[in-house]
């Protein structure tokens, strides 16, 4: 059992988008918990609702077209979704910080790096200009930007991709937040730089005792980073387990398929990588039955009729499936 205190508790979150073509059912009842200093990973294909879930928590869903239909997100006991915009402004960037996927577009092209990093310091910690400048230099040093005194006056386009993401991290960490949400922060980067950023986040997390939610579509990067993994599909959590458990004993057919699609050095070379047949779900239609049913190799009648609940399958391990993949037969 996890004895650390729960810092973020998300209950039955549902988020939709009302667009010209209809309603997109992006998040359809997600619950998850995050403990202090813990790192969890949310894994799933693009469009599975993993980013939307965390953006909803941060209050960053544009409304309209977005709408948070129901749910609660307790941060240290306060429901973030019930807070006013003004109250949320004090939480965002100070208690919960977020790093985004593409550091090129996520940084403002017409403001200097230094200014962008100093903004949360000014707003949340009321630092004066000189103190903030000093802190910006420290932060840039911390994330490994050489010559921070001069580089802080540069604009984003003068930074390389990896350096931009480091600057984004410095910005997110400026107020020493309790929770860092990293939304695919390495997807837009080269593999070597990817490893550096992951290493950096791990180091900073340990130094600051910060809880991290790492959103990714790549099960491969999760291994050395997270303690627990949450697999999402069609706006639902389909499986939740510790990293080791998930790799060794996956219970949901989708997780199985994901792992089979992953190249691994410990497997025989001549084994073919398997792709998942079929297309990702159409979120314009409210899923009826198990959303993975059309692509599932174990599918049977009940899957199409009823959506399975998220049920415990082992200690600290839950899966949303009617089929027992271990015994090769449906659950009773």
């Amino acid at each position: 059992m996890n004895r650390r205190q729960v810092i973020l508790d998300l209950k039955d979150l549902r988020t939709r988008f009302h667009i010209a073509e209809g309603t997109v059912y992006a998040v359809n009842g997600v619950s998850l918990t995050l403990h202090e200093c813990e790192t969890i990973a949310i894994v799933g294909e693009s469009g599975c609702g993993k980013s939307v879930t965390m953006l909803s928590v941060m209050g960053l869903i544009p409304v309209p077209p977005g709408e948070i239909v129901s749910g609660q997100a307790f941060y240290r006991g306060r429901d973030l979704l019930a807070l006013s915009e003004a109250e949320m402004e004090h939480i965002r960037g100070k208690e919960l910080a977020m790093v985004f996927q593409d550091p090129m577009t996520a940084l403002n092209p017409v403001l200097t790096i230094g200014r962008q990093i100093s903004e949360p310091l000014r707003v949340h910690l009321n630092m004066d200009h000189a103190t903030a400048q000093q802190r910006v230099i420290e932060l840039l040093e911390q994330v490994g930007i050489p010559d921070p005194k001069n580089r802080m006056n540069d604009y984003p386009h003068q930074f390389s991709g990896g350096m931009r993401q480091r600057a984004m991290l410095a910005m997110a960490l400026a107020c020493a937040p309790s929770v860092l949400i990293a939304d695919e922060p390495t997807t837009a980067l080269d593999v070597t730089i990817q490893a550096q950023i992951i290493e950096l986040v791990t180091r900073l997390r340990d130094a600051l005792c910060m809880a991290v939610i790492w959103i990714t579509h790549d099960l491969g990067v999760v291994a050395g980073l997270a303690e627990r993994v949450i697999v999402m599909y069609a706006g639902l959590v389909v499986e939740e387990a510790s990293v080791d458990e998930l790799y060794d004993d996956p219970r949901h057919p989708y997780t199985l398929a994901l792992l089979a699609a992953l190249p691994r050095i410990d497997r025989r070379r001549d084994r073919r990588l398997k792709s998942i047949p079929g297309a990702p779900p159409n979120l314009l239609v409210m899923p009826h039955g198990c959303p993975f049913a059309p692509r599932c190799e174990f599918v049977f009648d009940r899957c199409r009729a009823e959506t399975p609940p998220l049920l415990p399958v082992a200690i600290e391990h839950r899966a949303r499936c009617w089929y027992d993949v271990v015994n090769g037969k449906p659950f009773e």
Partner: peptide, 21 residues
């Protein structure tokens, strides 16, 4: 219980798969 709420009739009727294809 975390099952999905029954879909409202209207939204399904408007966007049945054959309309989209």
């Amino acid at each position: 219980m975390e099952s999905i709420a029954p879909p409202s009739k209207g939204s399904i009727a408007n966007l049945s798969p054959d309309v989209l294809e």
